[in-house]
Amino acid sequence: MKIAIPVDDKNPESGVCVSFGRAPYYLFYDTDTKEYHYLDNGAASGQGGAGIKAAQSIADNGAEALLTVRCGENAEQVLSGAGVTIYKTIQATARENIKAFTDKKLFLLNNIHPGFHSHGR
């Protein structure tokens, strides 16, 4: 199973980025093959809709689960449309959260926030 995590650096020891849509990179990890790779987030500095675009990339890269600190409602719609399950991270680093995930210690993220959208002004 392929999982995705927004990260601050291209490193398994990187902290999980507090922003989903504006994270600089995403770490993709395959729990079966133990392989991982990184994806630059093209939406990180975009005008708006970063969460939507990021969710699209997560889905396009075949992730079935997302481990994140938080997630906005627009991104959540895309992710759930794509069948990506969203889990809340409980540890600081990507590696620790992957371990928590494989140990089945992570819970579903249930407080989807209404977004921190700039106000279009």
Partner: peptide, 19 residues
Amino acid sequence: CKFNALAFVKNKPFVFKEV
């Protein structure tokens, strides 16, 4: 879409009206 108001997953287009 420069505003990322559209998405396409599982053969289904998504429109985010407020974006």
